[in-house]
């Protein structure tokens, strides 16, 4: 009887370990995305600071492909602000996802630990018998 339960437990353990690996990979991806967005946010904030320092009639150009296109200061300002808003929202969303995933990861870890303990107790009992 015990050999089949042991096999079942082992299979279960393997599945759970795979799940855990997947979650950890996702968390890594999330970290990378967050890093990218944080860098962009910082750059945009620097640009906004620089734009705020300008006089009303300053000439602002936007690089589109290889050409510089003249742009309204107000428009550029609004554009950068919108981008910062978007990136901040995206970062918040990633944060929420990350928290969720970390919770899942901890749960998986716990179930794996429990499974391992059960396997060990079964095997210890077998060794005695």
């Amino acid at each position: 009887m015990s050999s089949s339960t042991v096999r079942d437990l082992q299979r279960d353990l393997e599945n759970k370990a795979n799940d855990l690996g997947k979650i950890q990979k996702d968390i890594g991806k999330n970290h990378q995305l967050r890093k990218k967005y944080t860098i962009q946010l910082g750059e945009n904030e620097l640009v906004l600071k620089e734009l705020d320092l300008l006089e009303e009639d300053a000439n602002v150009y936007k690089l589109i492909g290889p050409v510089l296109v003249k742009q309204d200061l107000a428009e550029a300002n609004a554009n950068v602000r919108k981008r910062i808003e978007y990136i901040s929202a995206e970062l918040k969303r990633l944060d929420a996802i990350l928290q969720d995933m970390e919770e899942k990861q901890n749960n998986k870890r716990e179930t794996i630990m429990k499974l391992q303990q059960r396997l060990q107790t079964i095997q210890a009992g077998k060794a005695k018998a």
Binding site: E43, L46, V47, A58, V60, Y61, L63, I64, L68, V80
Partner: peptide
């Protein structure tokens, strides 16, 4: 002079 302030924006200064 034109200054590149990042994210594709240039400012005449």
């Amino acid at each position: 002079v034109l200054v590149d302030i990042g994210t594709g924006y240039f400012i005449e200064k």
